[in-house]
């Protein structure tokens, strides 16, 4: 009986420690100026995406053929493209697409990757061997090549680009969680949880998964940055968003033909991609330093 009480106390103590780790992490994050700058950039683009209809002065697909390839001016601060569409409005609406793809593709990779990683790490043996080999095989491909292959199979569209990006990032999360599970399952409080007869599912989803959250959040934030670039790359190759969607990568691809006459068609969408990615990278670096000081670079 005393043994049982000790085991329960052990588990409660572990949960309290976890709460204070989050608090400490938040204090460290707030002190990190670069991380705050990054978060500010991310917040800026989120607001841009949410309030796009209020911010954009024109409809994203409004064509004024008499205003084709106009240089930046008071009426069109980022200029116009070859259809006379306002580039500023398209960049603002483009934030919706990029953030949507970035966030949901990473969410997909996190959910599937975590599930596979947990199963592989917790159950070990042949399940681990099979899942790990699948990860090895997927990681053996240059990611953009695999993404191109997947989109080629599914057909070019924004939704399929999202699926492809989610798939290529699964092994990164899977491996991360697997290694966390392997170390956590040796901890005393897991042995204690097993000793009091807790089910595998409860141990996995109530103890192991919450204790793996920090690296998932860090990796997830950094992965959104990569996913946004990958989505833009697929769009650039004509395999992502299709016209007339104002996806930043596609806008860059369309700008290629007008590099000499209208470089603004290329400058602003590219700048938007770079800034968003920079924001997520700074935020991810800050989260890493805050949540896992051992990983600090």
């Amino acid at each position: 009986m005393a043994e049982l009480a000790r085991n329960e106390a052990n588990i409660v103590q572990q949960e309290e420690q976890a709460t204070s780790l989050w608090k400490e992490g938040w204090i460290r994050f707030r002190k990190n100026k670069m991380a705050l700058v990054g978060s500010g950039i991310v917040l800026f683009f989120i607001l841009l995406a949410v309030f796009a209809p209020l911010i954009a002065p024109y409809e994203m697909n409004d064509q004024q053929l008499s205003m084709r390839l106009q240089a930046p001016s008071k009426d069109h601060i980022f200029g116009t493209d070859d259809f006379g569409r306002d580039i500023f409005s398209r960049v603002v609406y483009g934030a919706r697409i990029s953030l949507w793809v970035g966030f949901f593709s990473v969410l997909g990779s996190v959910v599937i990757g975590s599930l596979l990683g947990i199963i592989a790490g917790y159950y070990g043996r042949w399940i681990d061997a099979v899942i790990s080999r699948i990860f090895d095989i997927m990681l053996a491909f240059p990611s953009i090549l695999l993404a191109i292959g997947i989109v080629a199979v599914l057909g070019p569209s924004l939704k399929n680009a999202l699926i492809a990006i989610a798939v290529i990032n699964i092994p990164n999360f899977g491996r991360l969680i697997r290694s966390r599970v392997l170390s956590i399952k040796q901890e005393e409080y897991i042995t204690a949880a097993k000793a009091i007869g807790m089910s595998d599912a409860r141990i996995l989803f109530h103890h192991i998964l919450p204790n793996s959250m920090a690296p998932i959040i860090v990796q997830g934030t950094l992965a959104i940055a990569t996913a946004i670039i990958e989505a833009a790359a697929l769009g650039f190759l004509g395999l992502g968003a299709q016209p007339p969607n104002p996806e930043w990568g596609k806008m860059l691809a369309d700008s290629k033909a007008y590099l000499t006459q209208a470089p603004w068609t290329m400058i602003f969408p590219g700048l938007a991609i770079m800034l968003t990615v920079l924001g997520f990278n700074l935020m991810g670096d800050g989260l890493r330093d805050a949540l896992d000081p051992r990983m600090k670079s």
Partner: peptide, 22 residues
């Protein structure tokens, strides 16, 4: 380096073409 890590290659390539080639 931080900006470099966040740089989309395809945008950098187009910028290079515009500045150094055109």
């Amino acid at each position: 380096a931080l900006v470099g890590v966040s740089m989309p290659i395809f945008w950098l390539g187009l910028m290079e073409q515009w500045i150094f080639a055109i």
